[in-house]
Amino acid sequence: MAANVRSRHRQHATGRALIYGGLLCLAAFYLMPLWVIITTSVKHLDEIYAGSFIGLPKEITFDAWRSAWSEACNGTACKGLKPYFINSLIMVVPAVILSTGIGAINGYVITKWRFPGSNFIFGILLFGCFLPFQAVILPMAQTLGFLGLAGTLAGLVLVHTVYGIAFTTLFFRNYFVGVPDELVKAAQIDGAGFMRIFVSIMLPTALPIIVVSCIWQFTQIWNDYLFGVSFTAGENAPITVALNNVVNVSMGRKEYNVDMAAAMIAGLPTLIVYIVAGRYFVRGLTAGAVKG
């Protein structure tokens, strides 16, 4: 009996060791590029060009970070990433709110106010997820020109909202499918209308999926380069376009340390979103997004 318990203990202990070992190995694999990025960003450029691409810096310097934030050149404008960081913030907030809001109400209609053809419409919206965006750049540019929004942040917000609808609708539809129809019926009997039910019953229950939708949209929009470079110009450019200009030099030397620091700065908002909201993310997904 005692032996049995001990062996089970041992089995348990080896099992735990395996789990932790596996997780640590995976974590090491996942951190490898981050290690390269961070060590490179605090190296002197000469050290990198002398052949030290991977490995510890001989001397730590934060010059590259300062340069990336406030001095790096995007063309002749050497103001660092700061102004473009602000552009991205100005653009991402309305785009995330709009696309999430529209997705929420669409999901609500598709699940709780079904009408003939509503599923078909959902299918039509959903197919938009799989559109290769490179194919729509030119007609979209013509449309924005027609609307007078060419080269503006407002135009970029519009584009991100339009192409975000497919995914946000999918998220909310999958979530609201799990909300019992009885809730809506009861509210209707109490005399609540379409909007009233949405605002005071559906939205409060939807908090987890709102978080998921916002995180997804925030990541996609913040990291988008293609639309940014297509639909804005010069001073209106979002941070990814500026980052690309800092990183991609054609006939000049690459400042790898500044590149890496710039990448970290450009990724900081999304990193923070993932770390701070990460828990809610999984919780939100648990609460419904995976009901497929």
């Binding site: 995007n74 063309g75 002749t76 404008a77 750049i137 030119l138 007609p139 540019a141 013509q142 924005l144 020109g145 060419a150 080269g151 470079v229 297509s230 639909f231 110009a233 010069g234 376009v241 690309n244 200009n245 990183v247 991609n248 030099v249 054609s250």
Partner: peptide, 24 residues
């Protein structure tokens, strides 16, 4: 200044084509 670097000039060409398509 409107600088668009990278991809052996393809990024800038793309930016130009969209700008022309938009009439801008």
């Amino acid at each position: 200044d409107s600088a668009v670097g990278g991809a052996n000039g393809a990024n800038a060409q793309q930016a130009l084509r969209t700008r022309v398509a938009a009439g801008n």
